[in-house]
C-alpha cells in the first residue's frame, strides 16, 4: 500500500513530471513564474483542482457515458476552478490578485483534463486522489524551480526578499517571456539528462514506460 503510494509520487515528481516530462500546462507556467510566491500559489491552486477533479471523475467514472465524457470532465473541472478562485479571492486576496487571469485559466490546463482522462477515469477514488497529489506536487516543484531561477537572477530576490543586495544588476531577460522559455528548455534538458543517468531506469524499462505513457495519453476514439 505504502509502496504503491511512494511509486505514484515518484512518477508524478520525476518520471512523469507534468511540466518537465509531459510538457503539459506550459502557457500558465511560463507566464506566472516571474516570482517564487506566484509559482507557489499557482502550484497549490492547480493541485487543489487536480485532487478534487480526480476524486469526482473517479467517483463518477461508471456513471459518465463514454460519448460525453470530455464535456462532463470539463464541467467538473471548471466547477472546481471556480470554487478555488472564489476561495482564494475570499481568503488570499493578494494571491488571487497576483495570479489574475491565470487563475480562471486553470480550466484549460491540460494536466487536469489529462489526468482525468488517463488516470481517474480508470481507477478507484483513493489512488486517484494520490495521483492528483503526486502530479500536483510534480507540477508545483517544477514551477518553484522555474520561479526560483527566474526571480533569483531576473530580479535578485526570493519571495520578494533581496538576496544579492542593492548592487546586483538583474539579468532582465530572465524575468521577461523569452527568459521563461529558455529556463524551461534548460530544465527539460536537465530532466532528460538526469533520467538518462538514473540507474534505476535502464533503457528497456524506459521504453516500456514510454509506450505505456503513450497508450494512456492517447484519447480513445469512439467507434
Amino acid at each position: 500500500m505504502f509502496k504503491t503510494i511512494l511509486k505514484q509520487f515518484k512518477e508524478g515528481v520525476f518520471d512523469k513530471n507534468p511540466l518537465l516530462v509531459q510538457i503539459l500546462g506550459v502557457c500558465a507556467s511560463l507566464a506566472i513564474t516571474t516570482s517564487v510566491s506566484n509559482a507557489l500559489y499557482m502550484g497549490l491552486a492547480v493541485t487543489a483542482v487536480l485532487v478534487c477533479s480526480n476524486l469526482f471523475v473517479s467517483l463518477l467514472r461508471k456513471f459518465i457515458p463514454q460519448q460525453v465524457r470530455i464535456a462532463a470532465y470539463i464541467v467538473i473541472i471548471s466547477g472546481f476552478v471556480t470554487i478555488v478562485e472564489m476561495l482564494m479571492k475570499a481568503y488570499l486576496p493578494s494571491a488571487a490578485e497576483k495570479l489574475g487571469i491565470f487563475l480562471p485559466l486553470i480550466v484549460v490546463n491540460c494536466i487536469i483534463l489529462g489526468r482525468a482522462e488517463a488516470y481517474a477515469s480508470q481507477n478507484a477514488p483513493f489512488p486517484s486522489i494520490i495521483d492528483g497529489l503526486a502530479m500536483g506536487a510534480g507540477f508545483t516543484i517544477a514551477l518553484l524551480l522555474l520561479g526560483a531561477i527566474r526571480e533569483l537572477f531576473g530580479a535578485g530576490t526570493l519571495f520578494g526578499i533581496s538576496i544579492f543586495g542593492q548592487s546586483y544588476t538583474p539579468i532582465g531577460i530572465l524575468s521577461s517571456p523569452p527568459g521563461a522559455f529558455i529556463v524551461l528548455g534548460c530544465l527539460i534538458a536537465l530532466m532528460q539528462y538526469l533520467k538518462k543517468d538514473c540507474p534505476s531506469m535502464n533503457s528497456t524499462q524506459r521504453r516500456k514506460s514510454q509506450s505505456r505513457m503513450s497508450k494512456q495519453g492517447r484519447i480513445r476514439h469512439d467507434p
Binding site: 463518477l60 456513471f63 459518465i64 457515458p65 460525453v68 464535456a71 462532463a72 464541467v75 467538473i76 471548471s78 466547477g79 471556480t82 470554487i83 472564489m86
Partner: peptide
Amino acid sequence: LPLVVICTLMVALI
C-alpha cells in the same frame, strides 16, 4: 441525463 445531473451537482457545489 448524467450530464444534467453532473451540471446540477457542480452548480450546487459552487
